[in-house]
Amino acid sequence: MKISLSFFIVISFLAGCSKRESRNSEIYLGTYRVADRVIPYPFILKHARGSVFLFDASGASLDNSDLHSMKEGETIAFKDQQFKILDKNESNLILFDLQDTISFRIYSNGKPNPKYAAKFQKLLVEDELDLQEFGNVLRKSIWKYELLEGDNSNPNHDLDIKQSFNFKEDSVNIITNYYYQTSKMISEYETKAYQIFEIDGIYFLSLRKENDNPQPIYRLKGFNSQNIELEDYSSKVRKILSLQKDTLSVDEYRKQLQNTAAYANCYDGYQGEYYYEDVTFNKGNEFIAEYVSENLPQTESKSGYIIIHFNINCSGNLGDFGLVQMDRSFKESVFSTKLVKHIINKVSELNDFPPSASQREWLQFKDVHSFLMFKIERGKITDVSP
């Protein structure tokens, strides 16, 4: 009995030491490049026992480098990347990639410009999670999330935007529903790859698309059968994303998916503005006014402006909608649900916008934000701009 008890104590002690040793490291999550603050920088750094390890967005180890102290002025030399440490404090690490001369720009004197550095967030170990169980929970249900005002890149005052997620083995379908006064106006969906992984007791869920279209790495904070909590550092303000279990079944979701149009930005970071490139509708605004006016609901007697914001992707498709309504004095106003739904759906059907990708070396984008402002006179469309 004494031998068995002693053996148990020794094993427990060694297991505890092993766990503490494996967590005796500093983990830094790549957040964004400082200049844009909207483009994720999906890498993870681990500093442990005199070495720095570089991980990609899937959790795969890319390279390692000897470095005893992470301090300002030091250079982390990997095979394909050399990071100069511009700043380091208790919570952040600011790095400049000396070999990426496109995204990381230098001053005329050849020194790194801190504006174009990448920010890394130091993460601390919290509760231990079971990733196998998380994977089972994740794939068993449909999850929903209501976008906060700051989540939407386009101007939007009047639409409630809700997303629902169906995680499969290695990909996730994301349906985005746009609501106005509790009525669904329009929907769109896209598909991304995803990965769940762990590095030294810290857990991650990453989204992935093409290599030139970086997606965020979320920290997994916790989960149960009804809720998933993710931490998002990929923009200026840290956000907590709480995914709630939806009452929609997987079969019902798939039926909904079949009746939803596909849309995705070609580049999920910065979108250009319509005036940077010639993205004027090929058939002109008069055509738009006539097209949208067809079968216009006769439910409105008010006058004012209905502004539909949207993105035009590199294929000339429309998505990422926003809605702003004003009266004739340019103050907030509200029009009927039928009128708003008709206009949004008609705009979404316009397919003669030219595809756009930036030709400017100093401003790279593949998608363009645009808008159409409909002037309403007693319920009728009398003008469209810009």
Rank of each mutant, 00 (worst) to 15 (best):
T182C: 04
E190F: 13
D212F: 12
V10D: 03
D383H: 13
P214R: 04
S103D: 10
D80P: 04
E210P: 01
N211Q: 10
L230S: 02
Y203K: 06
K168A: 10
H157G: 12
C266D: 15
S356G: 13
G304C: 03
L207Q: 05
I174P: 06
F13L: 15
I44F: 08
Q244L: 11
F78D: 01
K46D: 11
K331V: 01
N166A: 12
F371V: 02
K346N: 10
K341E: 09
L257D: 05
L207F: 14
Q81D: 09
L129R: 06
Q99D: 09
F335M: 03
G322D: 06
K19W: 15
G269T: 07
E128Q: 11
T280G: 02
I11K: 03
Y275Q: 13
Y189L: 09
A261C: 01
F104R: 05
K366S: 07
P40R: 12
D56P: 00
K283D: 14
C17Q: 01
I44T: 14
R238M: 14
G73V: 10
E133G: 07
H369C: 03
S91D: 11
M326C: 05
A261S: 15
E21K: 06
F335H: 02
D158E: 14
I11R: 00
E332S: 10
T280N: 13
K119W: 03
T337D: 05
S22P: 00
Y305T: 05
V279H: 05
K221V: 12
E74A: 13
F55T: 00
E21I: 06
T382V: 15
V384H: 11
E72G: 04
S91Y: 08
S293E: 08
A35C: 05
N211P: 08
S141R: 06
H342S: 09
Q195L: 01
L248E: 07
V347E: 06
V10M: 13
G222H: 07
L45S: 07
I76D: 06
D268T: 14
Q256K: 15
T31C: 14
S315I: 03
I288S: 12
S22M: 04
I161F: 13
G73D: 11
K245L: 09
P214C: 11
P354L: 05
G150S: 15
K184P: 07
S69Y: 10
D36M: 00
W143G: 00
K119G: 02
K380Y: 04
G110I: 06
F167E: 01
K88A: 11
R219P: 07
Q195F: 14
S225N: 14
